[in-house]
C-alpha cells in the first residue's frame, strides 16, 4: 500500500505540472499536443547542462539538482517558442505543429545525445547519467496511518511542483493575466476589443506550458531512470493532455486525474509483483494508465467543455 502511494505521487505530480502547463496553453486558445516533445527537450536541456557543468567545474551532480530543474524549465520554454511561432505568428495548424514538435524533439535530442557523448566524453551512449536525487521523509507526518505514506521518501521535485502548482492556479484564476488568458481561449476578439494584445498572452501561455513541461520531464528523468535517454518519450506528455481533458481544463480536477493515473500505474506494478508475474509482463502493466484513459474517455467526453476558441486561428482582421 505504501509503495503504491509513494510511487503514485512521484509519477502523478510531474504529470500534474505538465498538465497545468497544458491548461495554460489551451485556455489561451492554443492546442498543445507538443507537451510530450517539450518535456523531453526540457529534460535533455537540463541533463546536458548539469553534466557539462559537473564535468568542467568538477561539481558532483547531486549538488546540481535544482540547477537541473531550473534549466530544464528554461529548455522547455525555449523549445516551446517554436510551437508559439508556428501557431501564433505563422498561423499554422496547431495539431500538426504539436505533432511535428514531438517528432522533432525526439529525433533531435537522441541525435545530440549520442553526438555529445562521443565528442565530449568519448563514450558510445544515448544516455546522460544525471545521478539520483535525494529523497526525504517528514518523520512526524509519515507516522499517520495510510496517508502518512505521502510524506515518506519524497523527491524534492515533488515539493517544488506543488509550490509551483499552487502559484500557477492562483495566477490563472485570480490575477489580471489569468483573467485575460482565459478570455483568449473563449473569445479572443473580446480581448482584442478590450485593448489587450492577444498574441502576447498566447506566447506567454505557450512558454509557461513549455517551462512546466520541462520541469515534468526532468522529474521523470530523476525518478524513473536516473538518466536522460530516449526512454523518456514514453507518452507521458499525451497522458498529461488526457488528464487535463478529464479535468475539464481546470486545475483541481486535473490534479485528481493525475493522481488517478499515478496510482493506476503504481498499483499495476504492485499487482504484477503480487502475482509474481515475470518481468516481461510488467510492460503489460504499463499500459494500465492508457487503458484507463480509454475507459475515462468513454464516460467523460460528453460532460467536457473545451475552451470555445481552442485551436481557432486568431485573425485580427476577421470579424
Amino acid at each position: 500500500m505504501e509503495t503504491i502511494i509513494i510511487d503514485g505521487l512521484s509519477f502523478g505530480l510531474p504529470l500534474f505540472i505538465m498538465a497545468i502547463g497544458g491548461i495554460y496553453s489551451e485556455r489561451s486558445g492554443i492546442i498543445n499536443l507538443a507537451i510530450e516533445g517539450l518535456q523531453g527537450f526540457g529534460a535533455f536541456f537540463g541533463s546536458l547542462s548539469i553534466i557539462l557543468v559537473g564535468h568542467f567545474f568538477d561539481i558532483p551532480l547531486q549538488k546540481l539538482f535544482y540547477l537541473a530543474l531550473l534549466l530544464s524549465m528554461f529548455g522547455g520554454m525555449l523549445f516551446s517558442t517554436l510551437h508559439g511561432l508556428l501557431c501564433i505568428k505563422f498561423k499554422a495548424n496547431q495539431v500538426i505543429s504539436g505533432v511535428v514538435i514531438n517528432i522533432l524533439s525526439m529525433a533531435l535530442t537522441i541525435f545530440l545525445t549520442t553526438q555529445i557523448n562521443s565528442i565530449v566524453f568519448g563514450a558510445m551512449s544515448d544516455k546522460f547519467r544525471i545521478g539520483t536525487s535525494n529523497r526525504f521523509t517528514i518523520e512526524f507526518l509519515a507516522k499517520i496511518p495510510i496517508v502518512g505514506a505521502a510524506f515518506k521518501n519524497i523527491y524534492p521535485f515533488q515539493v517544488v511542483i506543488l509550490i509551483i502548482a499552487v502559484f500557477a492556479a492562483y495566477v490563472l484564476n485570480k490575477t489580471r493575466f489569468g483573467l485575460r488568458l482565459r478570455a483568449c481561449g473563449d473569445n479572443p476578439h473580446s480581448v482584442d476589443a478590450a485593448g489587450v494584445e492577444v498574441s502576447r498572452i498566447q506566447y506567454l501561455a505557450v512558454m509557461i506550458s513549455g517551462a512546466l513541461s520541462g520541469l515534468g520531464g526532468i522529474s521523470f528523468a530523476y525518478s524513473i531512470s536516473t538518466n536522460f535517454s530516449p526512454a523518456i518519450y514514453m507518452g507521458y506528455g499525451y497522458l498529461a493532455i488526457a488528464a487535463l481533458i478529464f479535468g475539464n481544463w481546470k486545475v483541481l480536477p486535473t490534479f485528481g486525474a493525475c493522481l488517478l493515473f499515478g496510482f493506476a500505474r503504481s498499483g499495476g506494478y504492485y499487482i504484477a509483483q503480487l502475482l509474481k508475474m515475470p518481468s516481461t509482463f510488467s510492460d503489460l502493466i504499463m499500459i494500465l494508465p492508457y487503458v484507463l484513459t480509454l475507459l475515462l474517455l468513454i464516460f467523460f467526453s460528453k460532460a467536457n467543455h473545451p475552451p470555445r476558441a481552442l485551436g481557432e486561428i486568431y485573425d485580427k482582421g476577421k470579424r
Binding site: L179, D186, N187, S190, V191, A193, A194, G195, R308, R319
Partner: peptide, 20 residues
C-alpha cells in the same frame, strides 16, 4: 459591435472590466 465581443463563460462583471 454587431457581433458582441463577449466572453461567454465569464460573468457580466468579468466581461466589463476585461482590460482595465
Amino acid at each position: 459591435h454587431q457581433h458582441f465581443k463577449l466572453v461567454r463563460n465569464y460573468t457580466v462583471t468579468e466581461n466589463i472590466i476585461l482590460g482595465i
